[in-house]
Simulated assay, not measured.
Amino acid sequence: MRRGFFVECPLARLSFDFGQFGLLAAREDPGVTAELDQHAAAVRDSIERDGTRLTRSSLTHYLHGFVDGCRERGWDSDGVDYDWETLRLLAICRLAKEYGFIR
């Protein structure tokens, strides 16, 4: 099995648990798709700002930091709408899939 495809990978768990419904729904809404593109670009820029490459490890590290920040602020998605945090998580899922870090 290729690296990044095992079930213990946080990116795979996020994609499986959270990303599937959002990415499918976003394809139907051009506005959400555009927002996801912007979030994905922001994540990529944030990771690459200091010369770090976008890898499974760097994206996982970003994910952990982002989720920790969400927890510290007490964020909880109501699942009704795409808030900023939900869009950022979906963008992380998209990047992980686009770069082949998950299936």
Rank of each mutant, 00 (worst) to 15 (best):
L89E: 11
H64F: 08
T60G: 13
G51T: 06
I92Q: 01
S46I: 01
Y62F: 15
C93A: 08
D76W: 09
A41D: 12
L36G: 07
C93F: 04
T55R: 03
D76H: 10
H39Q: 15
G79W: 03
D50Y: 06
A41C: 01
G51D: 01
D45N: 13
E48F: 02
R53A: 15
Y82P: 00
G74K: 00
G65E: 12
D83V: 09
D45F: 03
D45L: 09
L87G: 03
A34H: 14
G31I: 10
T33M: 14
T55N: 01
W84K: 15
C93Q: 02
H39F: 11
T86I: 13
D45Q: 09
S77I: 05
V43F: 03
E72H: 08
G31N: 12
V43P: 03
S46W: 07
F66V: 05
L89W: 10
S58K: 01
T55S: 10
L54P: 05
Q38T: 13
R44S: 07
E35D: 14
V67Q: 12
W75I: 02
D78Y: 02
E72T: 06
E48G: 02
V43Y: 00
W84N: 13
L90N: 05
R73K: 11
W75T: 05
T60L: 03
H61R: 14
L36F: 04
T60A: 14
W84P: 08
D81M: 09
R71Q: 12
A42I: 05
H64R: 15
E72F: 01
V32H: 07
L59W: 06
D45E: 13
D83C: 12
G69W: 07
A42L: 11
E48M: 11
C70V: 08
D50C: 03
R88K: 14
T86C: 12
A91R: 01
A40I: 08
V32W: 05
A91Y: 05
R71T: 12
F66T: 07
L89R: 05
R56K: 13
A34F: 11
L90C: 10
T55F: 01
C93I: 06
R49A: 11
Y62V: 06
L54S: 04
C70Y: 10
T60Q: 11
F66S: 02
V43I: 14
Q38K: 14
H61Q: 10
R56I: 06
G65T: 09
D81H: 10
H39E: 15
V80D: 12
W75F: 14
A40D: 08
L54I: 02
R71M: 11
G74P: 07
T33H: 13
I47Q: 00
G69A: 08
L59H: 02
L87R: 10
T55A: 01
L90W: 07
G31A: 14
V67H: 07
Q38P: 02
H64L: 06
S46E: 12
V80Y: 09
D68R: 12
R53V: 00
S77F: 02
A41T: 06
Y62G: 03
R49L: 06
C70G: 07
E85V: 14
A40E: 08
L89I: 10
L89V: 10
V43W: 00
E35G: 05
G79L: 03
R88T: 15
D78S: 08
S58N: 02
L36W: 02
R88I: 11
E72A: 10
S57I: 08
R73L: 12
D81L: 13
T52I: 09
C70K: 03
R49I: 01
H39L: 11
G51K: 07
R44H: 13
